[in-house]
Amino acid sequence: MRHIISLLMENEAGALSRVAGLFSSRGYNIESLTVAATEDATLSRMTLVTAGSDDVVEQITKQLNKLIEVVKVVDLSDGDHIERELMLIKVRAVSKDREEIKRMADIFRGRIIDVTDKSYTIELTGTGSKLDAFLGAIERSAILETVRTGASGIGRGERILKV
């Protein structure tokens, strides 16, 4: 099953490589990983998307907790949570396609953030499946380039991950 794990860790050089190293050395699956400093500059927050049986995911959270620089770990999938991913996509947009693509971006609540006479660059946020759906809705040959951040997640309501 797919799990989305959030963690807070000391914002120190090398902390990221400990997490990445853990996943590769123990053979855990890693779908995406995003990380940046939090409002407290001494802490980084990481969101990891992984897949595995319950036993494996239990080991993953235990092993993450064991890393000396990791302060807190939660499996967001254990409860209600919100997930978002950002995608930037550059598409070929000429003549009558321009209107069609703009409409499609509107339907998906994307924004066109750069324009040339041959292309649009669209910014789109949402769950991974929404981004997938957008990619599916656009003609394959029109896609020039895409970049996705991987998921970030946060608990709903009173669920707070803080030190």
Binding site: D55, E58, Q59, K62, Q63, N65, K66
Partner: peptide, 8 residues
Amino acid sequence: IDPSSISK
């Protein structure tokens, strides 16, 4: 003492 030793 190590949770990761348990049920591994």
